[in-house]
């Protein structure tokens, strides 16, 4: 290209210069290098400010608040050490919210991953209408949770709702879904599975496409059957994807807020008061900035542990291809 017109020596000189530019060996006194560094600083600055203030400073501020008994209005923030943490871990409502949150997260992850895997396996072959089905099944994932939640409130209507009617067709008497403490969480999980199954399907599909055909060909030569191929080849080779989905979806599930906020307001009888709803209520309804921040820190630690788990595991996964 550009080099074609240059002599060998010239081109070599230019290449060196470019190399220097790229690797920055000559330091601040080189004017070009200086331009590079200034450019880097200017380009990064706005984002660094945003993340610095709204993420990192806020995180540190939150740690501090969790060690005070502040209530948003009092002029003094009294430092009380770990008292908030001691209080919340003795608080039955907080402990219940932990349990409820994990119930939601595990139920949603198991359901949507199971369904997503089945769909991915079925769609990973040429069938008629493949793309159409993929679109239909994925589309709930892009919808606004707080809006689609209203649709589900309407579907879950006790006595006259669509779901009640459909269950009655197969002889099941539907419960009072959202107003029954035993079923409210399951109602939220059903909606969440409907939203997330398509996402899991898409991730599983790209995992499946990464499996080399050699394995399948070898299995074919050995005369392995469908189920045996699935069990001995597909699922083991898919396990990094499975693990990734499991941990990241769990992280997402633990942060649920929109659906319980719109559909049940944490009720009935705190059956759907998940951790984020607990944070919201403590902070913005009861104005307890201190212990709300402590609950937020507990959530942060759980998410951090899961993230580290995911990162270390993905780095040294057993089934490298």
């Amino acid at each position: 290209m550009a080099e074609q017109g240059l002599s060998m020596a010239e081109s070599k000189g230019v290449q060196n210069e470019v190399k220097e530019l790229r690797q920055g060996v000559s330091g601040w006194r080189n004017p070009r290098r200086r331009t590079d560094l200034i450019t880097a600083a200017v380009f990064l600055l706005p984002s660094l400010i945003v993340f610095g203030v709204f993420t990192y400073f806020a995180l540190g501020f939150n740690v501090y608040l969790s060690l005070t008994d502040w209530n948003f209005v009092s002029p003094v923030k009294r430092f009380i050490g770990l008292e908030n943490y001691m209080t919340i871990f003795r608080d039955r409502r907080f402990l219940a919210s932990l349990k409820v949150t994990f119930h939601y997260a595990v139920g949603t992850v198991a359901g949507s991953m199971g369904l997503g895997l089945i769909l991915a396996l079925l769609l990973n072959q040429k069938i008629r209408g493949q793309n159409f089905f993929r679109t239909v099944i994925f589309s709930p994932y892009v919808t606004t949770t707080s809006a689609i939640a209203l649709l589900w409130v309407w579907i879950f209507q006790p006595g006259t709702g669509l779901l009640h009617y459909m269950l009655s067709l197969i002889g099941i008497k539907g419960p009072r879904w959202l107003s029954d403490p035993k079923y409210a969480m399951w109602a939220l999980i059903i909606m969440a599975i409907w939203r997330a199954a398509g996402y899991n399907m898409v991730i599983f599909l790209s995992g499946l496409m990464n499996i080399s055909t050699e394995y399948y060909e070898a299995a074919k030569v050995d005369g392995a059957g469908t189920l045996s191929v699935l069990w001995h080849i597909t699922l083991p080779l898919l396990s990094p994807t499975t693990f990734f989905l499991m941990v990241t979806s769990l992280i997402g599930g633990l942060q649920v807020f929109d659906a319980p906020a719109v559909m049940t307001q944490g009720g009935p009888a705190y059956a759907t008061t998940v951790m984020n709803y607990e944070i919201y209520q403590r902070a913005f309804v009861y104005m307890h900035a201190g212990d709300a921040s402590a609950v937020a820190m507990v959530l942060f630690v759980i998410v951090a542990i899961l993230t580290v788990l995911q990162l270390t595991a993905s780095r040294r996964w057993v089934f490298y291809q």
Partner: peptide, 10 residues
């Protein structure tokens, strides 16, 4: 990796 709820109060 930092949930927005963790930083919402500050």
């Amino acid at each position: 990796m930092i949930p927005s709820q963790v930083t919402v109060i500050p």
